Amino acid sequence: MESAWFRRADVAAPEMSEAERAERAKREENERLEEWESARAAVSTSREPLPTRGAPRAEDWRTPADEGWRAAAAAAEPTLGGITAAGLPKRTPKANLVPGRVAAPPAAAAPPMPPISAERVRNRMASLQQGVRRGRAEVRDESLGKREKEEG
């Protein structure tokens, strides 16, 4: 059997009737389906019959995440704790939480920060101040050097 995949679609001759064109199209479609089915059968390694074409069943599409989606859909419509005299909704604390959400990790006791001495902070600030002074001095020296070159 030869594949019609790479053949150019011939423009039907004007003398070909509508019924002949329909018959030719149906025959070509059947050839393509036969090729497809034979390829599927060749690739299939199991002895199980190939699934038939049909609408998927709802049971085939269930996952463990579906319950979470249902809970989120329920939370999308907030519950109200009533309405105030002004016509505004009353808030009910924690009434609209999504059930089954990821629980917060248990709070582990953070190790205490070591005490920072005043001397250490003073030394750090002095280092920062010296770095700023050096940087400004370098910029000033570079700008003076450029001016001397321009004038000289």
Rank of each mutant, 00 (worst) to 15 (best):
M1I: 12
S3I: 12
W5T: 09
F6W: 07
D10W: 04
V11G: 05
A13D: 10
A13F: 04
P14M: 08
P14W: 00
S17E: 02
E18M: 09
A19F: 08
E20F: 00
E23A: 15
A25R: 07
K26N: 08
K26V: 08
K26S: 14
R27D: 15
E28N: 13
E29T: 08
N30L: 14
E31C: 06
E31L: 13
R32I: 11
L33Y: 02
L33S: 01
E34T: 15
E34I: 14
E35N: 14
W36R: 08
W36Y: 14
E37P: 00
E37A: 09
R40V: 13
A42M: 07
V43E: 15
S44Q: 12
S44W: 14
T45F: 02
T45W: 02
S46G: 03
S46F: 00
R47A: 15
P49Y: 03
L50W: 04
L50H: 03
L50P: 04
R53W: 13
R53P: 05
G54E: 13
A55Y: 06
A55R: 09
R57F: 15
E59R: 06
W61P: 00
R62Y: 03
R62P: 02
R62M: 10
A65V: 04
A65F: 11
E67W: 03
E67F: 05
G68I: 03
G68Y: 05
W69E: 04
R70M: 09
A71K: 03
A71G: 02
A71Q: 06
A75P: 00
A76P: 01
A76V: 01
E77D: 12
E77N: 07
P78G: 01
T79S: 05
L80Q: 08
G81K: 02
G81Q: 00
G82T: 00
T84M: 04
A86Y: 05
G87H: 06
G87K: 05
L88R: 14
P89S: 01
K90L: 10
K90H: 00
K90A: 01
R91S: 10
T92K: 07
P93I: 04
P93D: 11
A95F: 02
A95I: 02
N96Y: 01
N96S: 03
L97E: 14
L97W: 11
V98Y: 02
V98P: 02
G100E: 00
R101E: 15
A103P: 14
A104P: 04
P106V: 13
A107M: 12
A108V: 15
A108M: 13
A109C: 07
A109F: 12
A110M: 08
A110R: 11
A110T: 07
P111R: 12
P112M: 06
M113D: 10
P114Q: 10
P114V: 07
P115C: 05
A118G: 04
E119I: 03
E119C: 01
V121C: 02
N123H: 11
N123T: 09
R124Q: 12
R124Y: 14
A126D: 06
A126V: 03
S127K: 12
S127E: 14
S127W: 05
Q129N: 13
Q130E: 15
G131D: 11
R133M: 07
G135Q: 13
R136T: 06
A137Y: 09
V139C: 01
R140G: 09
R140E: 15
E142N: 11
E142A: 14
S143H: 12
G145T: 06
G145K: 08
K146A: 06
E148N: 05
K149I: 04
E150K: 05
E150V: 06
G152K: 01
